[in-house]
Design a protein around this nucleic acid. Structure first.
Lengths: 152, 152
DNA sequence: ATATAATAAATCGTATACGATGTAAATGAG
DNA sequence: CTCATTTACATCGTATACGATTTATTATAT
């Protein structure tokens, strides 16, 4: 009977994704440095630019991040005057996260900078719609698998 | 002049990748629990199953991980008796990482478990060769971009 | 041969990321 | 209404992940 071998690292989807995230984080670290933002902090701002005044629970779902992860990121954003935390009037358990003027104004500057960076390399256009769709399929699948695990 | 808006979160490649990694980590956490391994620890083992006795520098390059990241992971693997650290005879600066018998034997068991998990959901087969190629292209591109940043 | 530079690890500080646990407020069953 | 359950958030412990600095060793230039 043949010995069971692991798949080579380079062939594994999970490794390719793992590597891509680390590279993205590295790349964004430099790009976001002038704004004193980390990549996850920027992700939270992206979510808020899309819809301001979400409660932490909503942010958590939109970003697929647990509260244990989100809380320190939000605290940093409060420190840096990008967002504020306000207790919700309707439900005293909830906390509403809102953009400060600085947080709102930064959308333009940061987005411009990011799009400049992106077009520095035309190759980005290589990553077409199909690829993104596949990635979304992958994420849906991973969510389902994680949900299944939850229920065990 | 129109106000510059950020791209919606869901449309951003970087976010899809970021999310996928988190989901993978979560999924593998459960799968690897019986072996007392984390996902990054498993990644290091994958690399060593492919070629044993690498020095830390080689591992670092193969995994695109810095030494600051790799060192605590390797230390954990040593603690758990999966690998050993030996100073290289040729170059006293280098440290060779080798699989212990436990590390070698675990390849079969872990790989079998992983492939069982993978086939739990046929949808994985949806992620074809083309998708992986694209992802590799993306990683190559990200590497180049990071290299360019280095040189600034 | 020696001073200098480059390299491989180790260590430290900051920031995620997740599960587990704790707490207060809201919900629901009787 | 009251008590058990659920929910939203906070906190803690463990494990990455990266850049910066330090240390020991090797390579190199003169």
């Amino acid at each position: 009977m043949a010995k069971v071998k692991a798949q080579p690292l380079e062939d594994q989807l999970c490794f390719a994704i793992y590597k891509a995230t680390n590279q993205y984080t590295k790349l964004y670290r430099k790009a976001l440095e002038p704004f004193d933002l980390t990549y996850p902090q920027y992700i939270v701002l992206l979510a808020l630019w899309e819809s301001d005044h979400m409660i932490i629970k909503q942010l958590s779902e939109k970003l697929s991040l647990g509260i244990g992860t989100l809380n320190p990121i939000i605290s940093k954003l409060v420190e840096k005057d990008y967002v504020t935390k306000t207790p919700s009037p309707m439900d005293k358990r909830s906390v509403v996260i809102s953009l400060t003027p600085k947080g709102k104004n930064s959308e333009k500057t940061i987005s411009e900078m990011i799009s400049t960076k992106a077009t520095e390399c035309d190759s980005f256009t290589v990553f077409d719609h199909q690829f993104k769709l596949k990635l979304q399929e992958l994420n849906t699948l991973l969510s389902h698998l994680n949900d299944l695990e939850e229920k065990k």
